[in-house]
Design a protein around this nucleic acid. Structure first.
Lengths: 207, 207
DNA sequence: GCAATTTTTGACCGATTGGACAAACGTTAG
DNA sequence: CTAACGTTTGTCCAATCGGTCAAAAATTGC
């Protein structure tokens, strides 16, 4: 029992943070199995044994990373609230998700990597925490539909569509850039995307 | 120079096909770097040296697989035609893409894996063949908009949205199932998705 | 300053990896 | 039957993998 865990020193806190940052860089590109401890160590500017002094194993790094990720990743959906105006609420949810795809693409890709491979490490969280959260929000959307505030449709697949379209700009970034060409690959593409997505979701949900 | 390549024997054709099928199973789940030749060989029911008799290397298998994939993957977009009725055309494109997500999820995931990791092996194809094809279809969509047949919007991001929403049901299948729960995880989810997506795209494109 | 503690590293280990190779085994045409 | 060719496998190899360990170096508390 390691119940008497002594508090982390200043260096331990800093170095653990440094390692997680480096690991996010590496894991989000190559996936868990495709990445090596050496790559992470080099990205963090330290030797492999030194890295393993701060994290017991490669799995340990990944688990820590994933735990933090899930918390921030669900934040936008948690904020999704039963507001007076569904249009305002849906619009701001889309904007938040799109901002996350723009500002945290590594986190999005890490998550996508995990799901693509069958979510072996986070399946309980998907079936538990995530499902309950979506169930709750789906009920809100359904109440809007019953009140005639928005058009009737499947709230679950509506949420899937918002996830898919927004995360696409993080996960499939290279494809988006390649197709848009160098001229349109600036940050402006997120503004264009926001306009299209608003038109798409708001326009089709008019009661 | 191996310019005098003799034709493949019957066994060679069959075994190469068998290997590619097994490799699609393995690569689409674990990604290229996460998969081993041994895994592919076992899935194909043969020994590793035997597999390497039919393909020179692991890269060779992956390259062959990717080449075939790209051809079938672009087929739905190629069929996208300048029809009288944009609504019919867009609706059938969405249906075709959704059917591919349902019937060829392994291909979708293999493609997603490649893009996620920066598309190191197919970047030229994205910037060449794919971009030209999308440019062509974007022009068709723009002509529909100029003719007042559908609402004005960004054709590129419209295509991205169709890609994202349809492929989501292949790439993020485990998440979709986890959230929908066991009751709604049958094949019916594709029908529900089709309804939502039609409402989304057709509804918002009304001129 | 010094002893205790924490941090860092070089060297090393067993397991796994992609791949080579020659020998054995099958198949087939004459 | 048999020689030529196609197919299969056991064995081996160098490189890389995740991880250990003891010893050196740096830091900290007194």
């Amino acid at each position: 029992m390691e119940s008497a865990a002594r508090p982390l020193t200043r260096i331990q806190q800093e170095k653990r943070e440094l390692i997680l940052e480096a690991a996010l860089d590496v894991f989000s590109v190559h996936g868990f199995r495709g990445s090596t401890i050496d790559q992470v160590a080099e990205a963090a500017g330290m030797s492999k044994p030194n890295l393993l002094y701060y994290f017991r194993s490669k799995e340990d790094i990944h688990a820590t990373l994933m735990q933090r990720l899930l918390h921030t990743w669900l934040a936008p959906l948690r904020e999704f609230d039963d507001a007076d105006d569904p249009v305002v609420e849906i619009r701001s949810y889309i904007r938040r998700k799109l901002e996350m795809a723009r500002d945290y693409p590594r986190e999005s890709r890490l998550f996508a990597n995990e799901i693509l491979q069958g979510a072996p490490r986070i399946m309980p969280m998907l079936e538990g925490e995530l499902k309950e959260l979506v169930d709750e929000k789906a009920r809100i959307i359904e109440s809007w539909m019953r009140a005639g505030k928005i058009a009737k449709t499947d709230p679950y697949h509506l949420i899937f569509a918002i996830w898919a379209t927004t995360q696409h700009y993080a996960d499939f970034d290279v494809q988006v850039r390649a197709v848009l060409g160098p001229d349109r690959s600036g940050e402006g593409r997120f503004e264009d995307a926001a306009r299209l997505l608003e038109q798409l979701f708001i326009g089709s949900l008019r009661p």
